[in-house]
């Protein structure tokens, strides 16, 4: 491939990832604000986003770090919450084929988030290294930049506004969960089950003493596991 062709393919990827980049900016703004509200410095919050690039995992990690956790609990929580990426990386790996070598894969794996994965899978043309690198650029910038802005805003704004901004992240989680739960019964079952378990861990004597990370891990594994037995996904759905 000539240098010019490579550049135009990179630009095409860049354009394709622009929307996700903007969306990430707003979500990570909430993460930054929440981190600042919990006493994490703006640059440290930005470092978390720049190195992790995952909303749910980072959020759980932040909660654990603030609460004072062990390293093992932190790692276990990340393993469970982010396990779905393994499936996405496998699928993306199939679609990329042999043309994309080991070195580019080291980079592409880093930014294989839910949304970038969806864009890459939906792409009609053959995936190339420049396209994939272009695709990842705006989301990475948006995610990291949004965190920095949110953390800076969160550390100067008055307490009332800070608390309100901190809730944004929960709002986004609700926005991710509710629409599919409304459409698909199995997802609704997962949500209700996780809800009940999570309340038990929060309020039941005995279970209350279980640390936050382990509670999330148990709720996730139990709810997803039970529903995987009761409502296995159809074969074609995961072939994506």
């Amino acid at each position: 491939m000539t240098a010019m062709k490579q550049q135009s393919t990179y630009t095409r990827g860049l354009h394709r990832g622009l929307g996700v980049g903007v969306g990430y900016f707003s979500v990570s703004f909430g993460f930054g604000a929440m981190a600042a509200a919990q006493g994490i410095r703006a640059l440290d919050a930005t470092l978390i986003s720049a190195t992790n690039l995952t909303s749910a995992g980072q959020f759980a990690g932040l909660t654990l770090i603030v609460a004072g956790t062990t390293l093992w609990e932190l790692i276990l929580t990340q393993l469970v919450i982010n396990s779905r990426y393994a499936l996405m990386s496998l699928a993306l790996s199939q679609k990329m084929g042999r043309d994309i070598g080991l070195l580019p894969r080291l980079a592409i794996a880093f930014f294989n988030t839910d949304e970038i994965f969806a864009l890459a899978i939906a792409e009609r043309e053959k995936l190339t290294t420049p396209f994939m690198l272009g695709l990842g650029t705006m989301p990475i910038l948006g995610w990291t930049g949004g965190t920095l802005c949110g953390a800076l805003a969160g550390s100067v704004l008055p307490l009332g506004i800070r608390t309100a901004l901190g809730v944004m992240l929960y709002g986004m989680f609700v926005a991710i969960v509710v629409p599919p739960a409304r459409e698909e019964k199995p997802v609704l079952a997962v949500v209700v089950l996780a809800l009940i378990l999570s309340c038990l861990f929060a309020w039941m004597p005995g279970l209350k003493t279980v640390s936050a990370g382990i509670a999330i891990v148990i709720c996730t594994v139990a709810a997803a596991g039970i529903c995987a037995v009761l409502f296995p996904v159809p074969d074609e759905e995961v072939a994506a």
């Binding site: 749910a56 996780a194 809800l195 999570s198 309340c199 997803a224 296995p232 995961v238």
Partner: peptide, 22 residues
């Protein structure tokens, strides 16, 4: 099929558990 179903449901389970009652 179990593993694929499990991984499909993980995000909904963990996002719910993290949101409520926190």
């Amino acid at each position: 099929r179990f593993v694929r179903s499990f991984l499909h449901y993980v995000p909904y389970a963990c996002l719910t558990a993290m949101t409520f009652p926190a």
